[in-house]
Design a protein around this nucleic acid. Structure first.
Lengths: 117, 117
DNA sequence: CCGGATCCTCGTGGATACTG
DNA sequence: CAGTATCCACGAGGATCCGG
């Protein structure tokens, strides 16, 4: 193998490892949507349940717990009656905003392509 | 609700729909890695099996079939003995390159953050 | 070498009912 | 309102063997 190819291959492997690292944190089909949603505004549990279309209550609470563990979102319990819980994105979580934008942009293009074919 | 908030909410919903569209095509934990790999060079089945670390043969062939159906990659059977099969990225598939870069970049940052904490 | 077929396991995820 | 608990179905995904 030529040195140049070998270099490319090394880059490729590093990239795959990095992608795997990201997907470990954002696994499942909901987490990116939740992050994207909370990038716009803090939201309550019930609001997320409506906005993230198709998610069930169990999955939402599970995913929220995961995201909180990874310090991507923050859970705020407001001291009211009845209880109100607000989820908001952390500073670290907002570093994912570009990622969500790129994914959403491609989705829009893809949808157009499907419709036109 | 104020008009401005309502506008934001609309944007948010559209974005979530777009994200879902993308994830429908790139579901599972392997497709993005495969795409990223083929962005570097066309590869054979057995090469991908080594490069995409952890994937099993069954999953690889299944994912490749999915990606081919969505016109993101192309399967080339070379007329040799024994048979050689090369997978390469299509023009449409290469429109995902930016996406893979952004995901990989975040993965690298995230790994650094984990190590430093 | 490139997979397909088969069998098996386990996690994902929905539905529903229930608690504070 | 904001979840938890339980039950259940289904598909993801691994292991292994087989065929062109």
């Amino acid at each position: 193998m030529k040195p140049k190819e070998e270099f490319h291959l090394k880059q490729c492997r590093q990239k795959i490892r990095a992608i795997h690292d990201t997907l470990d944190v954002l696994n499942g089909k909901w987490k990116i949507s939740i992050i994207s949603c909370l990038c716009y505004a803090p939201m309550r549990y019930s609001e997320l349940l409506k906005e993230v279309h198709g998610i069930s209550g169990k999955m939402l609470s599970r995913e929220l717990k995961d995201l909180e563990m990874n310090n991507l979102i923050k859970r705020n319990v407001l001291d009211t009656q009845p209880v109100v819980v607000k989820y908001e994105i952390t500073e670290y979580g907002s570093s994912l905003k570009e990622l969500t934008n790129v994914i959403a942009d491609w989705g829009i293009k893809h949808r157009e392509k499907i419709i036109n074919s």
